[in-house]
């Protein structure tokens, strides 16, 4: 196996595009190195992207955030603005594994590993995040929900690398939240993950809502119906019942060692209800803080 640690994105793209055998991008390594050790992947070339400055920083540009794909969860958590403006994304990123894993694991890796259960992805979907992709043909943007196609499958072409995530400019009275269900209190892979982003009007009515669900289908989902179910409401019971039903209806889960189909469907509804309450309270509170 060959190891390269280029300092420019173009160099990384070249290496990846021209690789003869199996080439892999190494960010935090918390999935890739596990897969290498268990001989699930046996790359001929590993391209460590952590020396590429563009992929390692967090920049606030006119209210939007550009997060390097190789920034670790622990670093994200230490960014005071990001934590305040996108608490749901940050809590999702910091649910990935242990403290030790958070010291390494990145948003880019969590997305490109293409696991249906990745914690940060439903939160990023809810947030309306986009990814900037660099490749042999130049750069392009893609919505996060369009990146993962199925287990271990992404929309990236050969030679393409996710460089950064862009979180849109926040409007007033908006907030996000993420909840997941696991059997223990830490260290498990999500049995269900649910992220939501809400925008309220001054009267407390929801005017925009996006919900992402993880671990309930072959890939993380944007559940449009769930968002639509609560738009126009202030989370009254009928709206919550519609939300719960929409979340459950979107699930196409499997039975596995982590949970049954029925359990996942049931929990998706429970989490949807719980997480919108958190986001709603945060959005209301944001009026006092942000302006």
């Amino acid at each position: 196996m060959r190891y390269e640690a280029p300092d420019r994105i173009e160099k990384a793209v070249d290496l990846l595009a021209s690789a003869a055998g199996e080439a892999r991008v190494l960010a935090g390594g918390t999935d890739l190195i596990v897969q290498m050790k268990s001989e699930i992947v046996e790359p001929d070339l590993v391209i460590d992207v952590k020396r590429i400055a563009e992929m390692r920083g967090v920049v606030e540009e006119g209210g939007a955030f550009r997060i390097g794909a190789a920034v670790s969860g622990a670093e994200l958590k230490e960014h005071p603005r990001l934590r305040k403006v996108w608490p749901g994304v940050i809590e999702a990123a910091n649910l990935i594994g242990s403290t030790q894993v958070q010291g390494r694991a990145t948003l880019g890796g969590n997305l490109c590993n293409a696991s249906p259960a990745a914690d940060s992805v439903p939160a990023l979907i809810a947030a309306g995040a986009k990814v900037i992709i660099a490749g042999p043909a130049g750069r392009r943007e893609l919505a996060v929900e369009d990146v993962v196609l199925g287990p271990r499958k992404t929309a990236l072409a050969k030679g393409e690398i996710v460089v950064a995530f862009v979180l849109p400019k926040r409007v007033p009275l908006a907030a996000d939240a993420y909840l997941r269900f696991i059997p223990r209190t830490e260290m498990d892979i999500a049995v269900v993950g649910c992220g939501v982003d809400l925008t309220l009007d001054p009267a407390g009515k929801i005017i925009a809502a996006r919900m992402g669900l993880g671990a309930v289908a072959a890939r993380p989902l944007l559940v449009g119906e769930a968002g639509a179910a609560i738009i126009g409401s202030s989370l009254d019971e009928p709206a919550l019942a519609r939300l719960e039903a929409a979340a459950r209806a979107a699930c196409r889960p499997i039975d596995d060692k982590r949970g049954t189909k029925e359990f996942r469907v049931q929990i998706a509804g429970v989490l949807a209800r719980r997480v919108v309450h958190i986001a709603y309270e945060r959005a209301k509170a944001s009026a006092k803080v942000s302006t």
Binding site: R184, E186, I189
Partner: peptide
Amino acid sequence: MQNAGFLDYRVPVASD
């Protein structure tokens, strides 16, 4: 065996 690792063979952790 489907869960031959400490990820899915779930022994209690400190926060449990």
